[in-house]
Design a protein around this nucleic acid. Structure first.
Lengths: 333, 333
DNA sequence: CTGTTAGCGCTTTCAC
DNA sequence: GTGAAAGCGCTAACAG
């Protein structure tokens, strides 16, 4: 990589003249600016980013910590973050916590050495279970702003981006009710996570608001149990089930596959609607109804919040709610 | 963030003494070292990474450019890269080319300003179609080593990591032959990509090596056509098909779903084997046979190659071949 | 208009 | 044992 110094030497001018010329400083004569820029282009000169960063004491990079990159929802948020960050002149450094508190902590501390200006993250499952917050407050006290998305920690005072889980679940349930379903169960394979509770409330409220009297039916499957076996048991215990609201991103698809294997006609006899990134849809047949989480939008909003805070530390902390859509479904009554 | 300067002032010693003490320089008295380290810990001092980088003219970060982060294969490679990079003391900056040449080029140029020490990437589909290579050679000439994985460019002289496509396809086809299948078609939805050709050769060779005389049957579906419609047409044109080797990561699953919708019994009447990251498996029922691409291993090997080259530029260029496994399958003759 | 100088935070000779 | 000073590549205040 060629430096300003070498350009200066080659042109027999001073270093600062070159620097100013490259930055279109009006102090420099048009002719010099032209000569400098020409040589710079010729030599493929690029200002050394590290030096500029040191000078500005900013890195123009964002640390992103996601729990699981193989989860299409997080992958899609990452995509949204990456694209928005780039368009705002930021790079992102990606770390994966693997849902563990230890890796989450390690990643935060490693990057909080001037490698990044701030963080965007979704709290790891283990951290949520343990209700640990110390590592977050440490980082914030060190002067690094954090934006949490989707999996947020209520105890931390920082910017947050969430989807309106209550409303999303309410809408999903209402869709099944309006279809005429009368035995709608809620399937829960993520009991430990904060979002689960709101989705349950939305489901309950929708049943409550229904014109017909509908009994709530909550089925929670522990991570230690076999998802497939539990779903099979559910179908055999209660053959009247004609609607499923799956509030995580795997049990909906699992239900669909198992229903098919048991010869339960979907969507004629049974309707399934699941929370998920819509990237999963093409792999089920017929298409599974899905509550899209507008994952890229979450990423975009997260970047906007972080960049705003980087500009002005004194802003009020904000919690942004991202809308969701219910995508079209291949279903008949 | 606290600096060495502040520590020095507080201890009334010089900046260089503090620096040496922190780095366990034997010149410094034990007592001073202890005092310095104590205060550093107390103040939560961390050496400013940007300053260190400038001093060392290295960034200890790797630029990773992947074509599509929603593709589980690439997501998994990314995971492998991230984990291996971290354990070798490197961070990664992730960019997504979205399969376009323009974004690929832009990402390369943006990071080749001292932001990263080198690159790991899979060539974007568009770049492969156009057979463009200029942007790669430019970067390499600028002194940034590149490691290409999976989608590599033959025209570029750099380190590469690939899976043994020929052999993988050969093995997959042989599996179907050994099962007793006699009308095995090869399904190709990625005709433009370099890996496709080797997989076709492997398929052909396996048929050739078979004890029985088996006719090759290549079906190429253009990206502009409807995958679903083309597969339906295939089944109706040729009802004798009893085996499918799908050489991309979607047509296998699509075939499976369509076969089921047409009431073709899988795996009794039809066997399907597909190339894919094994992350897709759980979404099909019964499980689709798959050639796992050992994606995390690819990521790991890529990092090892890049780090080795960063240490020693003069090494011979290497092409590493990563082994593959055929995962167990739910099939009966 | 152009050049000299200081400084971002750190490491590393070289003096004392 | 400790400190002063130079330099990584760049910007910007200040002189000329």
């Amino acid at each position: 990589m060629i430096t300003i110094k070498e350009l200066a030497k080659e042109l027999s001018v001073s270093i600062s003249t070159v620097s100013k010329a490259l930055n279109d400083n009006p102090e420099i004569s048009e002719d010099t600016v032209k000569r400098v820029k020409e040589l710079a282009r010729l030599r493929n000169y690029k200002p050394n980013k590290t030096a500029v960063n040191l000078k500005n004491s900013s890195t123009k990079t964002i640390g992103v910590i996601i729990p699981d990159i193989l989860n299409p929802f997080f992958a899609k948020v990452l995509l949204g973050i990456e694209s928005q960050a780039n368009s705002k002149g930021y790079n992102i450094i990606t770390c994966v916590s693997q849902e563990t508190e230890a890796k989450e902590k390690e990643n935060l501390q490693l990057l909080a050495d001037g490698t990044v200006d701030g963080f965007i993250l979704a709290v790891a499952e283990e951290t949520q279970i343990n209700k640990t917050t110390q590592h977050f407050t440490d980082i914030i006290n060190d002067g690094f702003p954090i934006v949490m998305f989707d999996r947020v920690s209520d105890a931390i005072d920082c910017d947050k981006v969430i989807i309106d889980d209550f409303d999303a679940s309410y809408q999903a349930t209402k869709l099944l009710i309006d279809e005429g379903r009368t035995h709608i169960v809620l399937l829960n394979y993520i009991n430990e996570l904060s979002v689960g509770q709101l989705r349950i409330q939305g489901y309950l409220k929708a049943l409550e608001d229904s014109a017909k009297v509908l009994e709530p039916h909550l089925i929670t499957i522990d991570k230690s149990e076999s998802l497939d076996d539990s779903i099979k048991a559910m179908f055999s215990n209660d053959p009247k089930i004609d609607g499923i609201v799956a509030i995580d991103n795997t049990s909906g698809i699992a239900s669909l596959n198992i229903a098919k294997s048991l010869d339960i006609k979907v969507p004629v006899k049974l309707s399934i609607i699941g929370f998920s990134s819509d990237e999963l849809l093409p792999f089920s047949y017929p298409k599974l109804s899905t509550v899209s989480q507008n994952a890229t939008e979450i990423g975009k909003v997260s970047v906007d919040l972080l960049v705003a805070r980087l500009r002005d530390t004194s802003l009020e902390k904000r919690i942004e709610t991202v809308a969701f859509d219910i995508s079209e479904r291949d279903t008949t009554k």
